[in-house]
Design a protein around this nucleic acid. Structure first.
Lengths: 231, 231
DNA sequence: CCTGATTCTTAATAAAGCTTTAAGATTTTC
DNA sequence: GAAAATCTTAAAGCTTTATTAAGAATCAGG
């Protein structure tokens, strides 16, 4: 199995070191940087697969430069935000980061998000139209407007349902176990509840399928998991 | 899609460069200036859609520049203030600035405000009639006259209510969380108060809806926020 | 600067909508 | 046919939004 490298960038060495321990425990390679400039250097020298980045660093230009790199290479970035109040803002912003956690963070949660991004990064299989619209057959997902249309008709989805659909649409044709879906959508490190994903799948099917008992879009692969096919 | 140009004006080149990178990441064109005089020059030479302006500059300070700019053109201006005191804020807004952030600022927050102003300026997602009138179904918002009409009848709104309606009308069809609404309308960096937006929403509904319990215009999206739909 | 009116916020409670749990039914595979 | 996996349903539990009212803050006119 390939080994993935994570670039950790924070001006506080204590945080960087702590993250290093967690990441190494999960068998990631760790490259450390304490400023934007150092991060840039590291990106040029090493093969980096993911970046953990503190938003609030003294030298903003360094941080900005790091993001500039991302324009060229589409590496997943997880933002670490100092204030928990910022989370909404960052989420609401179409800033370009892939995920965020707020300080102080739960290391397990952070690890879960790292894993999520890694999977997302390594399992891309979707057809992106303009404006972040994903399409497959009669399904059309507009992530910007947060809308799903089935044969042109807008379908009202709850937050969890929407999360599941986004995840599967972002990875068309790829099969995910209930555990994987749970971890991704709920952003939890592990899947404890036995049946909850199944129930949500059922509800989604009721909303998007003509015959929920014989799904056309949201299919099961027996013994493996669920998927939405590339049309 | 049209490309918008932002004029960045600050006497500190590091800040200008950093902002440039952020803005370019959001696909804005960037024109740089390092003094008020240069800013005015740039305005004459380029097509500018928004200005980011530092208050404290040599030669001509931001406020003076704001007045000059306002004399000629009605471009959105965001003031960047070194002091967090209210004096600057009030002065800036009185002299015609549309928004302000204080240094040191969170780049993400600044980007959010830039986007917000851009939306305001272009009213993307809404149907802009002449004279800055926005319309959706029976709702008609005349920003110049500061009037909202529902089916032709003028509705009296308090300042806060009006602010919320303007914000939602300028972003028809887009859902905003209560936190986002608060931050935008109140111009505060974070949303502490638990329930105040909900109360205002309620009162707006009482004024604009036939049946406030079953709103036709100001709709809720469960778990996400509020919106006014494109008609 | 008072004073009264308007507007805004806070808080508490109610209602609505969503998620999870659990338990039995059904389907698939071997 | 038996075991394992998935499906289905309903109800309990939880979160979000709605509603109301009262007190605080703000504003305009004297």
């Amino acid at each position: 199995m390939e080994r993935f490298n994570v670039l950790v960038c924070d001006d506080d060495p204590a945080i960087v070191d702590a993250l290093e321990i967690y990441l190494k425990h999960e068998n990631y390679g760790v490259i450390k940087a304490y400023s934007g400039t150092q991060a840039l250097q590291a990106l040029a020298q090493h093969e980096i697969h993911l970046i953990l980045l503190d938003v609030m660093m003294p030298e903003m230009d360094g941080l900005a430069a790091t993001i500039k790199i991302r324009e060229e290479r589409n590496i997943p970035i997880i933002i670490i935000s100092a204030k928990s109040e910022d989370t909404d803002k960052i989420a609401g912003l179409n800033f370009g980061a892939d995920d965020y956690v707020s300080k102080p963070f739960n290391p397990l949660e952070l690890m879960a998000r790292v894993k999520s991004q890694m999977r997302r990064y390594t399992a891309l299989g979707s057809i992106a139209l303009k404006n972040g619209v994903l399409k497959s057959g009669g399904l059309e997902l507009d992530r910007e407007a947060r809308e799903l249309r089935v044969d042109g008709e807008i379908i009202r989805l709850t937050p969890t349902e929407y999360g599941i659909v986004v995840f599967l649409m972002e990875n068309l044709g790829h099969v995910f176990s209930t555990a994987q879906i749970y971890e991704q959508v709920w952003n939890e490190p592990s899947y404890a509840a036995e049946n909850t994903v199944a129930v949500h799948i059922r509800r989604i099917r009721e909303k998007i399928e003509i015959n929920p008992g014989e799904p056309k879009y949201l299919k099961v692969v027996w013994g493996i998991g669920y998927k939405i096919d590339k049309y």
